[in-house]
Design a protein around this nucleic acid. Structure first.
Lengths: 111, 111
DNA sequence: ATCTATTATCGTATATTTGCGATAATAGAT
DNA sequence: ATCTATTATCGCAAATATACGATAATAGAT
């Protein structure tokens, strides 16, 4: 009875939601922050920074990668991740398109 | 064993994540879109537009309200919702602060 | 006071997320 | 070939989220 009806919505709506979902956990925000701050790609340093087990961090990384927010290459024993800036560009512009554009029209809300 | 460790993270990280979470479902994106497009506050018109039951829409509205993305006033039998633009301003600026600022520094990723 | 239309809440079933320890997989070092 | 350090995956338990129908709550209309 709880089939997720996500398919019923627009492509754009789904994309935006998927992007937002990838960022919907503080751990993943923290990971993105670390990746953004360091020039070299980080691997297990993230684990040291976060208050989570290695396996959990790995899972969060996987989710971020699946959502396309980060890129990752496996270099044998160590993996290298970095932010996919293009994805953020896209999200940012879609987000602004949806809301900022409309904002001018009706700045004053009714309630 | 699956205690959510959200408290372990920064206030800002949690805020951003909470905001993103509120937008992490296509139905809620769709609701925000409807609210943004109409000048008057919408109540049950949203139910007509979405492919979901009334109770489900009400639940989504509640989540959006709890997250502070929308305001709502109960006018007896009908309720009136509208977007909280200030919240979006805040999110937008925090989001940009976190990522756009850093983007300039290391535009070219390593992987 | 009763009826009506609209919205919120409750209860419930299912699906997904979160987190961890244990274990596998990988490539370099010895 | 074996050892080591690092990362990914598996299996599980608990918490959340999603969706719906049924029911309660609300204020205006009759």
């Amino acid at each position: 009875m709880a089939f997720h009806k996500k398919e019923e919505f627009t492509q754009k709506e789904q994309e935006l939601a998927a992007f937002a979902k990838a960022m919907s956990h503080p751990a993943r925000i923290a990971i993105l922050k670390v990746l953004a701050q360091r020039n070299e790609c980080i691997c297990g340093d993230i684990v040291e920074v976060l208050p989570l087990a290695q396996s959990t961090v790995s899972q969060h990384l996987k989710e971020l990668k699946n959502a396309g927010l980060i890129d990752g290459t496996i270099d044998g024993p160590r993996s290298c991740y970095c932010i996919n800036w293009k994805a953020f560009e896209k999200f940012s512009s879609e987000f602004n398109f949806l809301f900022n554009k409309l904002k001018v029209k009706n700045e004053k809300a009714c309630c």
